[in-house]
Design a protein around this nucleic acid. Structure first.
Length: 526
RNA sequence: GAGCCGUUAGCUCAGCUGGUAGAGCACCGGACUUUUAAUCCGAGGGUCGGGGGUUCGAAUCCCUCACGGCUCACCA
Protein backbone atom coordinates (compact mmCIF):
# COMPACT_ATOMS: atom_id res chain seq x y z
CA UNK A 1 0.00 0.00 0.00
CA UNK A 2 1.38 3.35 -0.91
CA UNK A 3 1.62 6.16 1.57
CA UNK A 4 -0.64 8.23 -0.59
CA UNK A 5 -3.49 5.77 -0.31
CA UNK A 6 -2.79 5.58 3.36
CA UNK A 7 -3.29 9.30 3.72
CA UNK A 8 -6.52 9.22 1.78
CA UNK A 9 -7.84 6.38 3.84
CA UNK A 10 -7.18 8.36 6.98
CA UNK A 11 -8.95 11.38 5.54
CA UNK A 12 -12.18 9.36 5.35
CA UNK A 13 -14.24 12.26 4.04
CA UNK A 14 -18.01 12.16 4.11
CA UNK A 15 -18.27 14.24 0.95
CA UNK A 16 -16.61 13.96 -2.44
CA UNK A 17 -13.09 15.17 -1.97
CA UNK A 18 -10.74 16.92 -4.26
CA UNK A 19 -7.40 15.37 -4.81
CA UNK A 20 -4.51 17.69 -5.35
CA UNK A 21 -2.73 17.55 -8.67
CA UNK A 22 -0.39 19.91 -10.44
CA UNK A 23 -3.38 20.82 -12.57
CA UNK A 24 -5.50 21.89 -9.63
CA UNK A 25 -4.10 25.31 -10.37
CA UNK A 26 -5.16 28.56 -8.87
CA UNK A 27 -7.90 28.55 -6.32
CA UNK A 28 -7.01 25.31 -4.66
CA UNK A 29 -7.22 25.85 -0.92
CA UNK A 30 -6.33 22.72 0.92
CA UNK A 31 -7.57 21.40 4.19
CA UNK A 32 -5.14 19.65 6.46
CA UNK A 33 -5.98 16.24 4.97
CA UNK A 34 -5.33 17.66 1.54
CA UNK A 35 -2.07 19.26 2.60
CA UNK A 36 -0.98 15.85 3.79
CA UNK A 37 -2.25 14.14 0.66
CA UNK A 38 -0.27 16.61 -1.48
CA UNK A 39 2.90 15.62 0.31
CA UNK A 40 2.14 11.92 0.04
CA UNK A 41 1.62 12.49 -3.67
CA UNK A 42 5.05 14.08 -3.93
CA UNK A 43 6.55 11.17 -2.04
CA UNK A 44 4.85 8.69 -4.33
CA UNK A 45 6.17 10.54 -7.38
CA UNK A 46 9.69 10.35 -5.97
CA UNK A 47 9.30 6.64 -5.33
CA UNK A 48 8.06 6.12 -8.87
CA UNK A 49 11.11 8.00 -10.10
CA UNK A 50 13.38 5.72 -8.08
CA UNK A 51 14.25 8.43 -5.58
CA UNK A 52 12.62 7.09 -2.44
CA UNK A 53 14.00 9.27 0.40
CA UNK A 54 13.16 6.64 2.97
CA UNK A 55 15.45 4.16 1.24
CA UNK A 56 18.49 6.27 2.18
CA UNK A 57 20.42 5.02 5.20
CA UNK A 58 22.90 7.76 5.92
CA UNK A 59 24.38 11.10 5.00
CA UNK A 60 27.99 11.89 5.81
CA UNK A 61 28.21 15.52 6.72
CA UNK A 62 31.41 17.50 6.95
CA UNK A 63 29.97 20.39 8.95
CA UNK A 64 27.16 21.14 11.28
CA UNK A 65 25.65 24.56 10.69
CA UNK A 66 27.58 25.90 13.68
CA UNK A 67 30.84 24.49 12.32
CA UNK A 68 30.08 26.00 8.91
CA UNK A 69 29.52 29.44 10.42
CA UNK A 70 32.71 29.05 12.44
CA UNK A 71 34.70 28.14 9.35
CA UNK A 72 33.40 31.13 7.42
CA UNK A 73 34.32 33.41 10.31
CA UNK A 74 37.76 31.81 10.61
CA UNK A 75 38.51 32.42 6.92
CA UNK A 76 37.46 36.03 7.27
CA UNK A 77 39.78 36.43 10.23
CA UNK A 78 42.65 35.40 7.97
CA UNK A 79 41.75 37.32 4.83
CA UNK A 80 40.74 40.54 6.51
CA UNK A 81 38.04 42.98 5.57
CA UNK A 82 37.80 42.33 1.84
CA UNK A 83 37.20 38.60 1.76
CA UNK A 84 36.69 37.66 -1.90
CA UNK A 85 34.27 34.76 -1.67
CA UNK A 86 34.45 34.18 -5.44
CA UNK A 87 38.04 33.08 -5.14
CA UNK A 88 37.66 31.02 -2.00
CA UNK A 89 36.58 27.41 -2.19
CA UNK A 90 35.18 26.03 1.07
CA UNK A 91 33.49 22.73 0.26
CA UNK A 92 30.96 21.44 2.78
CA UNK A 93 28.24 18.84 3.19
CA UNK A 94 25.45 19.67 5.63
CA UNK A 95 22.16 18.13 6.55
CA UNK A 96 19.12 19.16 8.48
CA UNK A 97 15.54 20.28 8.22
CA UNK A 98 14.33 22.80 5.65
CA UNK A 99 12.57 25.48 7.69
CA UNK A 100 12.13 28.40 5.30
CA UNK A 101 12.12 28.98 1.55
CA UNK A 102 12.38 32.29 -0.25
CA UNK A 103 11.78 31.56 -3.90
CA UNK A 104 13.10 34.07 -6.42
CA UNK A 105 12.41 32.17 -9.59
CA UNK A 106 15.83 31.11 -10.79
CA UNK A 107 17.29 31.09 -7.30
CA UNK A 108 15.96 30.11 -3.91
CA UNK A 109 17.12 31.19 -0.49
CA UNK A 110 16.35 28.63 2.15
CA UNK A 111 17.07 28.00 5.83
CA UNK A 112 18.55 24.70 6.93
CA UNK A 113 18.20 23.92 10.63
CA UNK A 114 20.19 21.28 12.46
CA UNK A 115 20.77 20.35 16.06
CA UNK A 116 23.00 23.30 16.76
CA UNK A 117 21.66 26.12 14.67
CA UNK A 118 20.92 27.11 11.12
CA UNK A 119 22.57 28.00 7.88
CA UNK A 120 21.19 29.77 4.86
CA UNK A 121 21.17 27.91 1.56
CA UNK A 122 21.57 29.59 -1.81
CA UNK A 123 20.13 27.37 -4.48
CA UNK A 124 20.68 28.48 -8.07
CA UNK A 125 19.12 27.04 -11.18
CA UNK A 126 22.34 27.44 -13.16
CA UNK A 127 24.22 25.34 -10.59
CA UNK A 128 21.62 22.61 -10.10
CA UNK A 129 20.21 22.32 -13.61
CA UNK A 130 17.48 19.71 -13.67
CA UNK A 131 17.76 19.25 -9.93
CA UNK A 132 16.44 22.76 -9.39
CA UNK A 133 12.83 21.71 -9.96
CA UNK A 134 13.29 19.04 -7.34
CA UNK A 135 14.37 21.65 -4.84
CA UNK A 136 11.36 23.77 -5.71
CA UNK A 137 9.20 20.76 -4.94
CA UNK A 138 10.59 20.43 -1.42
CA UNK A 139 8.24 21.27 1.42
CA UNK A 140 8.99 23.05 4.66
CA UNK A 141 9.96 20.40 7.16
CA UNK A 142 11.70 18.14 4.68
CA UNK A 143 15.01 16.73 5.86
CA UNK A 144 17.73 17.16 3.28
CA UNK A 145 21.43 16.83 2.74
CA UNK A 146 23.30 19.50 0.74
CA UNK A 147 26.72 19.75 -0.82
CA UNK A 148 28.31 23.00 -1.94
CA UNK A 149 30.64 25.79 -0.92
CA UNK A 150 30.45 28.09 2.05
CA UNK A 151 30.40 31.87 1.74
CA UNK A 152 28.93 34.97 3.26
CA UNK A 153 26.35 37.06 1.42
CA UNK A 154 26.54 40.79 0.88
CA UNK A 155 23.98 41.18 3.64
CA UNK A 156 26.33 39.30 5.93
CA UNK A 157 24.52 35.99 6.18
CA UNK A 158 26.67 32.85 6.36
CA UNK A 159 25.47 30.62 3.53
CA UNK A 160 26.03 27.51 1.48
CA UNK A 161 26.01 27.77 -2.29
CA UNK A 162 24.27 24.51 -3.07
CA UNK A 163 25.71 22.37 -5.86
CA UNK A 164 23.64 19.27 -5.14
CA UNK A 165 21.12 18.11 -2.62
CA UNK A 166 19.30 14.96 -1.61
CA UNK A 167 16.00 14.45 0.18
CA UNK A 168 16.71 12.31 3.24
CA UNK A 169 13.22 12.21 4.75
CA UNK A 170 9.95 13.65 3.53
CA UNK A 171 7.88 15.68 5.98
CA UNK A 172 4.34 14.57 5.27
CA UNK A 173 2.65 16.98 7.64
CA UNK A 174 2.65 20.78 7.44
CA UNK A 175 4.62 22.76 10.01
CA UNK A 176 3.17 25.42 12.28
CA UNK A 177 3.50 29.00 11.24
CA UNK A 178 7.04 30.32 11.02
CA UNK A 179 6.59 33.57 12.87
CA UNK A 180 4.38 32.75 15.85
CA UNK A 181 5.49 29.15 15.99
CA UNK A 182 3.45 26.70 17.98
CA UNK A 183 1.73 28.41 20.91
CA UNK A 184 -1.07 26.08 21.92
CA UNK A 185 0.00 24.63 25.26
CA UNK A 186 -1.78 21.36 24.80
CA UNK A 187 -0.29 20.70 21.37
CA UNK A 188 3.14 21.76 22.58
CA UNK A 189 3.07 19.09 25.30
CA UNK A 190 1.32 16.38 23.29
CA UNK A 191 3.52 16.87 20.24
CA UNK A 192 6.72 17.99 21.91
CA UNK A 193 8.58 17.01 18.74
CA UNK A 194 6.84 19.85 16.93
CA UNK A 195 7.42 22.24 19.83
CA UNK A 196 11.13 21.42 19.76
CA UNK A 197 11.24 21.71 15.99
CA UNK A 198 9.83 25.22 15.76
CA UNK A 199 10.48 26.83 19.15
CA UNK A 200 14.20 27.29 19.57
CA UNK A 201 13.88 28.50 23.17
CA UNK A 202 12.31 25.16 24.07
CA UNK A 203 15.25 23.33 22.52
CA UNK A 204 17.62 25.55 24.48
CA UNK A 205 15.76 24.91 27.72
CA UNK A 206 16.11 21.16 27.45
CA UNK A 207 19.75 21.49 26.46
CA UNK A 208 20.17 23.55 29.59
CA UNK A 209 18.49 20.89 31.66
CA UNK A 210 20.77 18.24 30.25
CA UNK A 211 23.85 20.38 30.92
CA UNK A 212 22.66 21.02 34.46
CA UNK A 213 22.25 17.34 35.26
CA UNK A 214 25.69 16.63 33.78
CA UNK A 215 27.14 19.37 35.95
CA UNK A 216 25.47 17.88 38.98
CA UNK A 217 26.94 14.45 38.20
CA UNK A 218 30.39 15.95 37.75
CA UNK A 219 30.11 17.72 41.08
CA UNK A 220 28.99 14.66 43.02
CA UNK A 221 31.59 12.49 41.34
CA UNK A 222 34.26 15.05 42.24
CA UNK A 223 33.16 14.85 45.87
CA UNK A 224 33.80 11.12 45.92
CA UNK A 225 30.20 10.00 45.52
CA UNK A 226 29.34 6.79 43.72
CA UNK A 227 26.38 6.81 41.35
CA UNK A 228 24.16 3.80 41.92
CA UNK A 229 20.86 2.39 40.72
CA UNK A 230 18.28 0.96 43.07
CA UNK A 231 14.96 -0.76 42.33
CA UNK A 232 12.20 1.24 40.69
CA UNK A 233 9.77 -1.64 41.08
CA UNK A 234 9.62 -2.44 44.75
CA UNK A 235 7.75 -4.99 46.81
CA UNK A 236 7.54 -2.43 49.61
CA UNK A 237 7.71 1.31 49.13
CA UNK A 238 8.90 4.00 51.49
CA UNK A 239 11.16 6.99 51.99
CA UNK A 240 8.46 9.62 51.59
CA UNK A 241 4.87 10.35 52.50
CA UNK A 242 3.02 9.56 49.30
CA UNK A 243 0.72 7.06 47.68
CA UNK A 244 2.42 4.76 45.19
CA UNK A 245 1.47 3.46 41.78
CA UNK A 246 0.81 -0.26 41.79
CA UNK A 247 1.77 -2.55 38.96
CA UNK A 248 1.64 -6.29 38.52
CA UNK A 249 4.24 -8.92 37.75
CA UNK A 250 2.53 -11.67 35.74
CA UNK A 251 4.97 -14.56 36.10
CA UNK A 252 5.34 -14.03 39.83
CA UNK A 253 1.67 -13.11 40.12
CA UNK A 254 2.38 -10.31 42.55
CA UNK A 255 1.76 -6.61 42.82
CA UNK A 256 4.76 -4.30 42.81
CA UNK A 257 5.03 -0.63 43.71
CA UNK A 258 6.75 2.00 41.63
CA UNK A 259 9.14 3.75 43.98
CA UNK A 260 8.15 6.98 45.67
CA UNK A 261 11.76 7.49 46.85
CA UNK A 262 15.07 5.61 46.74
CA UNK A 263 15.96 6.55 50.30
CA UNK A 264 15.68 3.23 52.11
CA UNK A 265 17.72 1.40 49.46
CA UNK A 266 20.44 4.03 49.41
CA UNK A 267 20.86 3.82 53.17
CA UNK A 268 21.14 0.03 52.90
CA UNK A 269 24.17 0.76 50.71
CA UNK A 270 25.66 2.88 53.49
CA UNK A 271 25.21 -0.13 55.77
CA UNK A 272 27.07 -2.18 53.19
CA UNK A 273 30.05 0.15 53.28
CA UNK A 274 29.50 2.36 50.25
CA UNK A 275 30.11 5.56 52.15
CA UNK A 276 29.01 8.13 49.60
CA UNK A 277 26.27 7.24 47.14
CA UNK A 278 23.80 9.09 44.98
CA UNK A 279 21.07 8.28 42.53
CA UNK A 280 19.45 10.48 39.91
CA UNK A 281 16.21 9.04 38.69
CA UNK A 282 12.51 9.03 38.25
CA UNK A 283 10.11 8.86 41.17
CA UNK A 284 6.42 8.09 40.91
CA UNK A 285 3.78 9.48 43.21
CA UNK A 286 0.10 8.79 42.81
CA UNK A 287 -1.28 12.23 43.47
CA UNK A 288 -2.76 15.28 41.82
CA UNK A 289 -1.22 16.99 38.81
CA UNK A 290 -0.64 20.74 38.81
CA UNK A 291 1.97 23.32 37.94
CA UNK A 292 4.32 21.95 40.61
CA UNK A 293 3.52 18.23 40.50
CA UNK A 294 3.87 15.61 37.81
CA UNK A 295 3.12 11.96 38.62
CA UNK A 296 6.64 11.05 37.56
CA UNK A 297 9.46 13.42 38.34
CA UNK A 298 13.23 13.41 38.62
CA UNK A 299 14.99 13.52 41.92
CA UNK A 300 18.57 13.28 43.08
CA UNK A 301 19.24 11.73 46.45
CA UNK A 302 22.69 11.67 48.04
CA UNK A 303 23.86 9.95 51.23
CA UNK A 304 27.12 10.46 53.02
CA UNK A 305 28.39 8.44 55.97
CA UNK A 306 29.96 10.13 58.99
CA UNK A 307 28.38 13.52 58.39
CA UNK A 308 25.07 15.05 59.42
CA UNK A 309 22.51 17.63 58.42
CA UNK A 310 25.21 20.31 58.60
CA UNK A 311 27.25 18.41 56.06
CA UNK A 312 24.13 18.14 53.91
CA UNK A 313 23.76 21.91 53.94
CA UNK A 314 27.22 22.29 52.49
CA UNK A 315 26.59 19.49 50.00
CA UNK A 316 23.25 20.96 48.93
CA UNK A 317 24.83 24.37 48.43
CA UNK A 318 27.47 22.77 46.24
CA UNK A 319 24.92 20.77 44.27
CA UNK A 320 22.56 23.64 43.53
CA UNK A 321 25.46 25.89 42.60
CA UNK A 322 26.78 23.19 40.27
CA UNK A 323 23.35 22.96 38.64
CA UNK A 324 23.08 26.73 38.27
CA UNK A 325 26.60 27.16 36.91
CA UNK A 326 26.09 24.39 34.39
CA UNK A 327 22.69 25.66 33.31
CA UNK A 328 23.14 29.43 33.36
CA UNK A 329 26.84 29.96 33.93
CA UNK A 330 25.88 32.07 36.92
CA UNK A 331 24.75 31.93 40.53
CA UNK A 332 22.24 34.69 39.83
CA UNK A 333 18.87 34.16 38.25
CA UNK A 334 15.39 35.63 38.04
CA UNK A 335 12.28 33.64 38.82
CA UNK A 336 8.78 35.11 38.45
CA UNK A 337 10.34 38.55 38.62
CA UNK A 338 12.31 37.74 41.80
CA UNK A 339 16.05 38.29 41.66
CA UNK A 340 17.77 35.34 43.28
CA UNK A 341 21.39 35.09 44.41
CA UNK A 342 22.54 31.55 45.08
CA UNK A 343 25.92 32.48 46.50
CA UNK A 344 26.53 30.37 49.64
CA UNK A 345 26.33 30.19 52.55
CA UNK A 346 22.55 30.31 52.84
CA UNK A 347 20.71 31.41 55.99
CA UNK A 348 18.68 29.13 58.24
CA UNK A 349 15.21 29.72 59.53
CA UNK A 350 13.45 27.79 62.26
CA UNK A 351 10.12 26.39 61.13
CA UNK A 352 8.36 27.10 64.43
CA UNK A 353 10.03 30.49 64.94
CA UNK A 354 9.20 31.66 61.44
CA UNK A 355 5.54 30.68 61.74
CA UNK A 356 5.34 32.33 65.15
CA UNK A 357 6.95 35.49 63.81
CA UNK A 358 4.55 35.87 60.91
CA UNK A 359 1.28 34.54 62.35
CA UNK A 360 1.78 35.01 66.08
CA UNK A 361 0.91 31.37 66.65
CA UNK A 362 3.53 29.42 68.62
CA UNK A 363 3.04 25.82 67.57
CA UNK A 364 5.81 24.82 69.98
CA UNK A 365 3.47 25.56 72.89
CA UNK A 366 0.53 23.65 71.47
CA UNK A 367 -0.08 20.14 72.70
CA UNK A 368 -3.11 18.86 70.81
CA UNK A 369 -4.98 19.16 67.53
CA UNK A 370 -7.81 20.95 69.35
CA UNK A 371 -5.41 23.53 70.77
CA UNK A 372 -3.93 24.05 67.35
CA UNK A 373 -7.34 24.56 65.76
CA UNK A 374 -8.20 27.08 68.45
CA UNK A 375 -4.91 28.94 68.00
CA UNK A 376 -5.35 29.09 64.21
CA UNK A 377 -8.91 30.38 64.33
CA UNK A 378 -7.92 33.84 63.12
CA UNK A 379 -5.70 32.53 60.33
CA UNK A 380 -6.95 31.96 56.83
CA UNK A 381 -6.76 28.17 57.00
CA UNK A 382 -10.44 27.33 56.76
CA UNK A 383 -10.35 25.00 53.75
CA UNK A 384 -7.51 22.91 55.14
CA UNK A 385 -8.66 19.32 55.30
CA UNK A 386 -5.98 17.99 57.62
CA UNK A 387 -6.72 20.04 60.75
CA UNK A 388 -4.20 18.20 62.88
CA UNK A 389 -1.49 20.13 64.68
CA UNK A 390 1.12 19.06 62.14
CA UNK A 391 -1.25 19.71 59.25
CA UNK A 392 -2.05 23.21 60.44
CA UNK A 393 1.59 23.99 61.08
CA UNK A 394 2.46 22.80 57.60
CA UNK A 395 -0.30 24.87 56.02
CA UNK A 396 0.41 27.96 58.12
CA UNK A 397 4.03 27.78 57.04
CA UNK A 398 3.11 27.23 53.42
CA UNK A 399 0.68 30.12 53.34
CA UNK A 400 2.42 32.70 55.49
CA UNK A 401 6.15 32.00 55.48
CA UNK A 402 6.95 30.21 52.25
CA UNK A 403 5.91 33.12 49.96
CA UNK A 404 8.65 35.19 51.65
CA UNK A 405 11.46 32.70 51.01
CA UNK A 406 12.84 34.19 47.82
CA UNK A 407 16.56 33.83 48.53
CA UNK A 408 17.83 30.31 49.23
CA UNK A 409 16.88 29.45 52.81
CA UNK A 410 17.30 26.35 54.94
CA UNK A 411 14.18 25.87 57.02
CA UNK A 412 15.12 23.77 60.05
CA UNK A 413 13.71 22.03 63.12
CA UNK A 414 10.94 19.88 61.71
CA UNK A 415 8.85 17.90 64.22
CA UNK A 416 9.48 14.19 64.62
CA UNK A 417 5.87 13.32 63.70
CA UNK A 418 6.35 14.39 60.11
CA UNK A 419 9.95 13.14 59.89
CA UNK A 420 9.87 9.38 60.46
CA UNK A 421 13.36 8.75 59.05
CA UNK A 422 15.24 11.68 60.58
CA UNK A 423 17.39 11.70 63.70
CA UNK A 424 16.21 13.68 66.71
CA UNK A 425 18.17 16.85 67.48
CA UNK A 426 18.88 15.32 70.90
CA UNK A 427 17.63 12.21 72.68
CA UNK A 428 13.96 12.67 73.58
CA UNK A 429 13.59 15.84 71.49
CA UNK A 430 10.45 16.29 69.40
CA UNK A 431 12.45 18.09 66.76
CA UNK A 432 14.67 16.51 64.14
CA UNK A 433 18.00 17.42 62.62
CA UNK A 434 16.39 18.22 59.29
CA UNK A 435 16.07 21.01 56.75
CA UNK A 436 14.02 21.81 53.73
CA UNK A 437 15.50 24.19 51.18
CA UNK A 438 13.40 26.93 49.64
CA UNK A 439 14.47 28.99 46.64
CA UNK A 440 12.27 31.49 44.84
CA UNK A 441 9.45 30.47 47.23
CA UNK A 442 9.61 26.91 45.89
CA UNK A 443 10.55 23.92 47.98
CA UNK A 444 13.40 22.22 46.20
CA UNK A 445 15.24 19.98 48.68
CA UNK A 446 14.88 18.02 51.89
CA UNK A 447 17.66 16.62 54.06
CA UNK A 448 18.45 15.33 57.51
CA UNK A 449 20.76 13.46 59.79
CA UNK A 450 19.70 9.88 59.16
CA UNK A 451 18.03 7.98 61.95
CA UNK A 452 20.26 4.97 62.56
CA UNK A 453 18.84 3.72 65.85
CA UNK A 454 16.91 0.54 64.92
CA UNK A 455 14.83 0.69 68.10
CA UNK A 456 13.70 4.26 67.51
CA UNK A 457 13.18 3.49 63.83
CA UNK A 458 10.94 0.54 64.69
CA UNK A 459 8.85 2.76 66.96
CA UNK A 460 8.58 5.37 64.22
CA UNK A 461 7.46 2.75 61.72
CA UNK A 462 4.92 1.48 64.24
CA UNK A 463 3.59 4.99 64.64
CA UNK A 464 3.33 5.25 60.85
CA UNK A 465 1.52 1.92 60.67
CA UNK A 466 -0.91 3.18 63.30
CA UNK A 467 -1.51 6.37 61.29
CA UNK A 468 -2.06 4.18 58.29
CA UNK A 469 -4.61 2.10 60.16
CA UNK A 470 -6.30 5.35 61.16
CA UNK A 471 -6.80 6.20 57.50
CA UNK A 472 -3.60 8.00 56.49
CA UNK A 473 -2.85 6.18 53.25
CA UNK A 474 0.38 8.11 52.81
CA UNK A 475 2.01 6.83 55.99
CA UNK A 476 4.93 4.42 55.73
CA UNK A 477 4.36 0.68 55.78
CA UNK A 478 6.58 -1.38 58.10
CA UNK A 479 9.87 -2.39 56.46
CA UNK A 480 11.42 -5.28 58.38
CA UNK A 481 14.34 -5.70 56.03
CA UNK A 482 15.28 -2.05 56.45
CA UNK A 483 15.18 -2.50 60.23
CA UNK A 484 17.35 -5.61 59.88
CA UNK A 485 19.87 -3.55 57.89
CA UNK A 486 19.91 -0.91 60.66
CA UNK A 487 20.60 -3.66 63.17
CA UNK A 488 23.80 -4.45 61.31
CA UNK A 489 24.83 -0.84 61.89
CA UNK A 490 24.22 2.27 59.80
CA UNK A 491 27.02 4.76 60.40
CA UNK A 492 25.92 8.24 61.39
CA UNK A 493 25.10 9.85 58.07
CA UNK A 494 23.50 12.74 56.32
CA UNK A 495 21.15 12.35 53.39
CA UNK A 496 19.41 14.72 51.04
CA UNK A 497 17.00 14.76 48.12
CA UNK A 498 16.43 17.48 45.55
CA UNK A 499 13.69 17.78 42.94
CA UNK A 500 15.47 18.38 39.65
CA UNK A 501 12.32 19.53 37.86
CA UNK A 502 11.56 22.09 40.55
CA UNK A 503 15.12 23.38 40.44
CA UNK A 504 15.00 23.70 36.66
CA UNK A 505 11.70 25.54 36.92
CA UNK A 506 13.44 28.15 39.06
CA UNK A 507 16.72 28.24 37.13
CA UNK A 508 14.93 28.56 33.79
CA UNK A 509 12.19 30.88 35.08
CA UNK A 510 9.32 28.71 33.86
CA UNK A 511 5.81 29.07 35.31
CA UNK A 512 5.07 25.35 35.33
CA UNK A 513 6.82 22.05 35.95
CA UNK A 514 5.37 20.87 32.64
CA UNK A 515 7.57 23.38 30.86
CA UNK A 516 10.74 21.63 32.05
CA UNK A 517 9.54 18.05 31.51
CA UNK A 518 9.81 16.84 27.93
CA UNK A 519 6.66 14.77 27.97
CA UNK A 520 4.48 15.86 30.90
CA UNK A 521 1.54 13.69 31.80
CA UNK A 522 -1.71 14.53 29.99
CA UNK A 523 -4.99 12.72 29.60
CA UNK A 524 -5.20 10.82 26.35
CA UNK A 525 -6.58 12.63 23.32
CA UNK A 526 -10.20 12.08 22.26
C1' G B 1 -12.35 16.54 43.60
C1' A B 2 -14.40 22.11 43.34
C1' G B 3 -14.58 27.03 41.05
C1' C B 4 -13.33 30.24 36.98
C1' C B 5 -11.58 30.72 31.89
C1' G B 6 -10.74 28.62 27.15
C1' U B 7 -11.46 25.28 22.41
C1' U B 8 -13.15 29.30 15.28
C1' A B 9 -8.75 27.39 8.58
C1' G B 10 -2.58 23.33 8.93
C1' C B 11 -0.49 27.56 12.47
C1' U B 12 -1.36 32.52 15.06
C1' C B 13 -5.71 35.07 16.00
C1' A B 14 -10.42 38.52 15.05
C1' G B 15 -15.68 37.76 14.99
C1' C B 16 -20.13 43.52 19.30
C1' U B 17 -26.88 43.25 22.01
C1' G B 18 -28.33 36.02 17.87
C1' G B 19 -28.98 37.40 11.16
C1' U B 20 -25.67 32.24 8.59
C1' A B 21 -17.32 33.01 8.64
C1' G B 22 -12.71 36.87 8.56
C1' A B 23 -7.24 38.32 8.52
C1' G B 24 -1.94 37.13 8.48
C1' C B 25 1.27 33.07 7.66
C1' A B 26 1.29 28.24 5.34
C1' C B 27 -0.71 25.84 0.87
C1' C B 28 -1.95 26.36 -4.86
C1' G B 29 -1.11 29.19 -10.01
C1' G B 30 2.09 33.16 -12.13
C1' A B 31 6.58 36.81 -12.06
C1' C B 32 11.37 37.44 -9.99
C1' U B 33 19.42 35.10 -9.57
C1' U B 34 21.86 38.60 -2.84
C1' U B 35 16.89 37.14 -0.09
C1' U B 36 16.36 36.40 5.21
C1' A B 37 8.72 37.46 8.54
C1' A B 38 11.60 38.25 0.71
C1' U B 39 8.41 41.02 -2.63
C1' C B 40 4.50 41.54 -6.38
C1' C B 41 -0.05 39.56 -9.09
C1' G B 42 -3.91 35.91 -8.76
C1' A B 43 -6.77 32.15 -6.33
C1' G B 44 -10.08 31.59 -1.40
C1' G B 45 -10.24 26.94 2.61
C1' G B 46 -14.10 25.78 7.97
C1' U B 47 -18.24 19.53 11.32
C1' C B 48 -16.83 27.41 14.70
C1' G B 49 -14.22 20.83 20.29
C1' G B 50 -18.61 16.65 20.44
C1' G B 51 -23.86 15.99 21.55
C1' G B 52 -28.56 18.07 22.87
C1' G B 53 -31.89 22.39 23.59
C1' U B 54 -34.14 27.53 22.87
C1' U B 55 -35.22 30.32 18.30
C1' C B 56 -37.92 31.88 11.98
C1' G B 57 -32.53 31.85 12.49
C1' A B 58 -26.92 29.90 16.99
C1' A B 59 -19.65 30.49 16.41
C1' U B 60 -22.75 33.82 19.59
C1' C B 61 -27.88 32.08 24.47
C1' C B 62 -28.92 27.44 27.72
C1' C B 63 -27.71 22.19 29.16
C1' U B 64 -24.24 18.32 28.83
C1' C B 65 -19.73 15.69 27.67
C1' A B 66 -14.40 15.78 26.25
C1' C B 67 -9.73 18.09 26.45
C1' G B 68 -6.64 22.16 28.10
C1' G B 69 -5.25 26.47 31.32
C1' C B 70 -5.42 29.02 36.10
C1' U B 71 -6.84 29.02 41.33
C1' C B 72 -8.13 26.04 45.51
C1' A B 73 -8.11 21.14 47.70
C1' C B 74 -4.81 16.88 47.70
C1' C B 75 0.51 16.63 47.70
C1' A B 76 6.49 17.79 48.52
Amino acid sequence: MSGCENARRRAAPSRPRRIWTKESGAGFMPTEQELIAQRYAKLEALRQAGADPFAIHRFDRTHTTAQAVAEITAVEAQTGDQTDWDSIHLPARLCGRLMAKRDQGKAIWADLHDGEGKLQLWVRKDLLGDGFAGFQDLDLGDIIGCEGTLFRTRRGEPSLRVESFVLLAKALRPLPEKWHGLQDTETRYRQRYVDLMVNSEVRELFRKRSRAVSGLRRYLDSQGFLEVETPIMQTLYGGAAARPFITHHNALDMDLYLRIAPELYLKRLLVGGLERVYEIGRMFRNEGVDTRHNPEFTMVEAYQAYTDVEGMMRLTEGMLCALAEAANGSLHCTYRGMKIDLTPPWPRLSLLESVKEVTGVDFGCLGSDAEAQEACRDLDLLEVQDASLAGLLDKAFERYVQPRLVQPTFVVDYPVVISPLAKRKAPGSDLTARFELFVGTEEVANAFSELNDPVDQRQRFEAQVAMRAAGDDEAHPMDEDYLRALEYGLPPAGGMGMGIDRVMMVLCDRPSLREVILFPHLRPEE
